[in-house]
């Protein structure tokens, strides 16, 4: 009986099928993602730029592109460094309130003592901004905070500002609003993740702490927070990686449409916007160099993530 003999072979006999099943993924990955990545590396060592509409390739250069990524012609910090700084600032002011609020909401929504009705509807509503096209959201907020925007008018009528260009002519409000949009779009997502984290904590630990007479705050500090650490780390790392690529919101918010760079005075130009600007102006070598730096920063974070994921898997195994 052929089937029986087949049965006797363990899955290892079918191993070759494994290659067939994973082949499409790897072929496409190698061609469309890995090679472009390697090619970007190669380009970052080539002095390629466009002059008068024609591309000029002055050949291999070890340092020219990378030097310009770090230091400007006058010896000061380069535009690339500035854009990394902008990205970091915008990200931090989005992430800190986001994680704090999400923690609070996660605790509230999982609190068995103070049950909140309509928690499901709440989740649906706060998650909504996350599914909407970021480009549309950015323009929506710009329309509201622009010189003739309804919210600008409102704040002016309240006497808080005296200039209708306040939000777009000053670095802090522009960055602040971009941070807020990011926060607004993502805190629902983070809350949902943290809720699943809290629900994953063994309830008996909370019960035991109740018997010991722990206050809500003590429970939060000594149980919830430590137990949530892995998921919070996950949120942190994914948010940081996502934040480094931030493009859609800042690229359509307060920008000079002629150059595509953030206003005022590049205060809201992020790294990816800058890469876009460099490719747009034909500085392919330098655009590649900035991409590589961005990649390395991301890679370091990915490694952190990987190490942490391994940790969690181990812990899960121990539990099981």
């Amino acid at each position: 009986m052929a089937t029986q003999t087949v049965k006797k072979h363990k899955t290892i006999e079918y191993g070759r099928y494994g290659y067939l099943f994973i082949a499409p993924f790897f072929i496409v990955y190698l061609v469309f993602q890995l090679w472009p990545l390697i090619y970007t590396f190669i380009l970052s060592f080539q002095d390629i730029y466009v002059k008068y509409g024609d591309e000029i390739n002055d050949g291999f250069t070890l340092t020219k592109n990378y030097a310009s990524v770090f230091v400007a012609n006058d010896g000061t910090a380069s535009m690339a460094i500035r854009t990394f700084g902008n990205t970091a600032i915008i990200w931090i002011f989005n992430f800190i309130p986001q994680i704090l609020l999400s923690l609070l909401l996660a605790v509230w929504l999982t609190d068995t003592k103070v049950k909140l009705k309509g928690a499901g509807a709440f989740k649906v509503m706060v998650y909504l901004p996350n599914v909407i096209t970021a480009a549309s959201i950015s323009i929506l907020f710009f329309s509201m905070f622009g010189p003739n925007g309804p919210l600008t008018k409102l704040v002016m009528d309240l006497g808080w500002i005296d200039n209708n260009r306040f939000f777009i002519d000053n670095a802090a409000p522009t960055r602040g609003i971009i941070s807020f949009i990011q926060f607004w779009m993502w805190y629902g997502n983070t809350t949902l993740l943290l809720i699943s984290g809290v629900l994953g904590i063994n309830p008996s630990i909370f019960e035991a702490s109740d018997i010991d007479g722990c206050t809500g705050w003590q429970k939060f500090i000594h149980i919830t927070l430590p137990m949530l650490r892995p998921i919070m780390l996950y949120v942190l790392v994914t948010s940081l990686i996502g934040g480094l690529q931030m493009y859609d919101i800042p690229s359509l918010f307060n920008v000079n449409m002629n150059t595509g760079r953030g206003m005022p005075d590049d205060a809201s130009t992020t790294v990816t916007m800058y890469i876009r600007f460099l490719t747009k102006t034909g500085n392919f070598g330098r655009a590649a160099a900035v991409s590589v730096i961005l990649f390395l920063v991301t890679l370091i974070l990915s490694v952190l993530f990987f190490v942490f994921m391994g940790d969690r898997d181990k812990k899960a195994k121990k539990k099981g």
Binding site: P36, L37, T238, I241, S291, L294, F295, S302
Partner: peptide
């Protein structure tokens, strides 16, 4: 796959575009 999971498409865009 785990390692490349977090590599964002944006960093390869220059090479991708030219390729």
């Amino acid at each position: 796959i785990m390692a490349v999971m977090m590599v964002p498409g944006q960093v390869t865009i220059v090479g991708f575009l030219r390729f």
